[in-house]
């Protein structure tokens, strides 16, 4: 039977992502910049057989924190621009990665750390670097996490996107089927080393088998509110409300509220996909922003309340 159009498109998209990965890694290598390819080809290597397709539509690169500024300069040299400039997110929740785009094609997410890790980025980098293994991507030698690193990333990715993203659930199911007990134990140790055990546990717990495994690995069953909230795939404003509650001082809180009501263009693009489709899309997003806020506020507040109750 012929491949479905969706499978062919997914495979082609993965090929295109690999081409961009190889291009960026080659440019990084010329400047002696170190990067680890997270997810995409790494998940493909450890969780899928060679002729199965895992859809990946972007490139996730964990760059050594000390190399970040030079890495960004290289990306600009290759024609990429950040979706959001750093100053546009001042006061908002810090991002663990920045998305770089080029002509609407494959984007590159530059990771400063991994989502869910509480340890300083340098410590997270060292932990992953120490376990990295080599993989050829389009003829370019790349570093990817080992099986334990992938096990941890699968859990953290699930914790980041939550229970509603089918891809996270299917990656987790595959990881539970395919990775060894040793890999999971080492992943738990790694999670503790980078202060990611609560998020790892939350991610595993979106699946019943994962929930049992988290208990077997001795991971914490009580999690911070933000971790609990994320893993529930909350409405768009819920994490912002949680961040607001943690922001100290009336002045800073007011500033955050003002920036949420009247966001910078980059912040708008980060929040709403429509804002990414040119100036028209951005204008429409600004016009509809008050309604968007009003629509999502009640459900977001409820989600936060639920997460607080579960976390308590």
């Amino acid at each position: 039977m012929a491949l479905s159009e969706a499978t062919v498109r997914a495979a082609a998209r993965g090929l295109a992502a690999d081409v961009v990965t190889a291009e960026v890694l080659t440019a990084f290598a010329e400047q002696r910049i170190s990067g680890i390819v997270l997810r995409g080809p790494a998940f493909q290597r450890w969780l899928y057989s060679p002729d199965e397709v895992r859809t990946y539509v972007d490139v996730d690169l964990f760059v050594r924190p000390a190399d970040r500024a030079r890495a960004e300069a290289v990306l600009r040299g290759l024609g990429f621009d950040p979706l959001v400039e750093e100053f546009e997110l001042r006061g908002h929740r810090p991002l663990h990665a920045t998305e770089w785009t080029r002509d609407g094609g494959i984007s590159v997410d530059v990771h400063e750390t991994v989502s869910g890790a509480g340890a300083p980025p340098r410590q997270v980098w060292e932990a992953f670097r120490a376990r990295a293994v080599s993989l050829s991507i389009n003829g370019v030698e790349a570093m990817i996490p080992d099986a334990a690193g992938v096990a941890l990333l699968v859990g953290l990715h699930a914790a980041h996107h939550g229970v509603r993203l089918e891809r996270c659930r299917s990656d987790l199911r595959r990881a539970l089927d395919r990775l060894s007990d040793q890999a999971w134990h080492e992943a738990a140790e790694l999670a503790c080393r980078i202060d990611a055990a609560p998020a790892f546990a939350a991610g595993l717990s979106i699946d019943s088998r994962g929930h049992e495994l988290a208990a077997k690995l001795g991971l914490p069953s009580k999690r911070p509110v933000d971790v609990e909230l994320r893993a529930s795939s909350p409405p768009p404003l819920a994490l912002g409300l949680e961040w607001l509650s943690r922001t100290p001082g009336a002045r800073a809180k007011t500033g955050l509220l003002v920036r949420t009501a009247f966001p910078a263009p980059g912040a708008m693009r980060a929040w709403r996909s429509r804002a990414r489709s040119g100036r028209g899309g951005l204008a429409v997003s600004y016009l509809t922003h008050p309604f968007w806020l009003a629509r999502h506020l009640p459900s977001s507040a409820l989600a936060l309340r639920r997460a607080r109750r579960t976390s308590a």
Partner: peptide, 15 residues
């Protein structure tokens, strides 16, 4: 020109 085998068929990407 890049390609890979998927479920016994070639998918090719003409860049």
């Amino acid at each position: 020109l890049e390609w890979r085998e998927v479920e016994g068929e070639i998918v090719a990407l003409d860049l």
